[in-house]
Design a protein around this nucleic acid. Structure first.
Lengths: 230, 230
DNA sequence: CACCTTGTAGTCAAATGTACTATAAGTTAT
DNA sequence: ATAACTTATAGTACATTTGACTACAAGGTG
């Protein structure tokens, strides 16, 4: 293999990460400020080069952690962006990844080539370099569609959550009120929630049962043609 | 730019094409036989290297035409496959594209590094090299999902078609039998089919009414939040 | 204890989906 | 011509799901 030194990079291939945050009933996007390189000073999507000895998925996780301090989240691939002139100085194709998280759960820390990290409201996003604006819009469109048809929203909750927490999340994401008993019944019938046999603590009212999302069952069901619909 | 000669390739980045054909109420996949290289003699997905001066989309179209003779189809990107060991001799990440077509409309012609091209029934696909089997399965899953939520299948029918043709198409795509009266009712209620006020000819039984897909109405409905669901 | 908040169960009508049956409109064989 | 056959199309009856709502349970607070 050529260039097989441990840290060799594939300099025609990069990763960019769309980290969407859900906060105060609004969508935010995580950007980093470049501390060096051709876009020094500009805010952009967290991104970097893939190493020869790591998978694209692993590269995305590593790059995100190095630049922003955000780790242990489930990154999903959006798609590759391969226009000839998307990058100014040489031919670079990028693979975009995305995730939907709750900002409160992460402590931001700029690192590596990033001089700063910050959440931006979607309305306040500055002009982005390269084709990052196109990537952001593609990601947004994908996310809005996905949230309605796949249980991606569970990432935004603690591992153990109550049905009301889940309902309020979806009410915010979908922008509409939902009926409590009906929501409960619908979700329970999907068999995607495992009862933890525990209850809330420290609440000044009747404690609700805690559940967790059953990803294994979900994966099995989707193979058989099941689709999550709210 | 490094290596900017016209035909220079990015040898860490390839394209692979999933061309699904719909024929005799069955899904087929288009494979090419390698005429040279490390997998000589093996059947595989049509694929090749991206050039420095062409977009990923353009590369996919060129590679498909060079190897198989199939051109002028709408290729959509599936996603990138970036595992470290997916390719044996060096580190290669591939971007997979897919399309759904009717085979009768294309004349196959093996070219370039391909010694043969053929449609394979999904049940008769030989063992594929690299991670092509995983790519095929990812594409199939994507296609099955997409077909249920977007009226992509109409591309496979003549402009004027009968309800039974449409039903048989979906039965094949979804892999299950559907009830005739119920299928008819469901489709008709969507208001996406325009009656042509014509009937079949040259059939040895009662002639069925012909319909065509109403794309304009579909586009209007989708803007209002309508989603095609079967 | 009364009284508050939230959790959980149940009811009922409307809409939708599913499995059928029935009939119509042609073609073909006798 | 007519019976037999094929496919089209309409209708029907039952089950399931959905949506709006009511009732009650469980726990905390004053």
């Amino acid at each position: 293999m050529p260039h097989e030194t441990p840290d060799a990079i594939i300099d025609a291939l990069s990763i960019d990460c769309l980290i969407f945050g859900f906060q105060k009933n609004e969508l935010d996007i995580l950007l980093v400020q470049h501390g060096e390189g051709i876009s020094k000073g500009k805010w952009a999507l967290p991104g970097g080069w893939i190493k020869y000895n790591e998978s694209a998925d692993a590269a995305a996780a590593r790059i995100l952690q190095d630049l922003t301090g955000v780790s242990k989240i489930y990154l999903e691939q959006l798609r590759a962006f391969g226009d000839v002139h998307r990058y100014p100085t040489k031919r670079v194709i990028t693979i975009a990844y995305y995730a939907l998280v709750k900002p409160e759960a992460y402590t931001l820390g700029a690192g590596f080539t990033a001089s700063d990290v910050k959440w931006f409201k979607l309305g306040d996003v500055p002009s982005l370099p390269y084709d990052h604006s196109a990537i952001l819009h593609a990601g947004l469109r994908h996310l809005k569609h996905k949230v309605r048809h796949e249980p991606i929203g569970f990432n935004l909750l603690p591992k153990k959550f109550t049905l009301l927490q889940l309902q309020e999340l979806y009410e915010a994401l979908l922008g509409q009120k939902l009926d409590k008993p009906n929501f409960r019944r619908k979700l329970m019938k999907m068999n995607l929630l495992i009862p933890c046999k525990e209850k809330q603590t420290d609440v000044s009212h009747r404690a609700a049962s805690l559940y967790r999302f059953d990803k294994k069952t979900y994966d099995k069901l989707t193979e058989k043609g099941f689709t999550f619909e709210l």
